[in-house]
Amino acid sequence: MTAPDDLHYTRDHEWVRLQDDIATIGITDHAQEELSDVVFVELPDLGDIEKASPVAVVESVKAASDIYAPVSGEIIEVNTDLVTDPAKVNTDPYDGGWIFKIRVSDSAQVNDLMDAGSYTAMVS
């Protein structure tokens, strides 16, 4: 399993890529391995969102998993490619498999998240 150094991570296995005030969010390589066979992603509605509230659902053949907002802000974009190709979450978790983007209310929020080293230690 991989965990790129430039990302931030949650205990719930989401990753966050912060560019200026835009956070791109997906699930980690470890999470997609655990789920396997992602067959459906329920994308969030655009709009304001509070940190830790459930926003999306990733369904594998065997189970459904809630995705929580890792930061507060406004959901400004969702990855509509996942509607027709949900398996991108498996094949390309950190790039083509991103799920949604949040314009963060305060960039300092990511300081509460884990770095790659801590996340890797948590799941291994």
Binding site: E14, A64, S65, I67, Y68
Partner: peptide, 8 residues
């Protein structure tokens, strides 16, 4: 991410 419902 948290598992919410298994099929069995």
């Amino acid at each position: 991410m948290a598992a919410t419902k298994g099929s069995q």
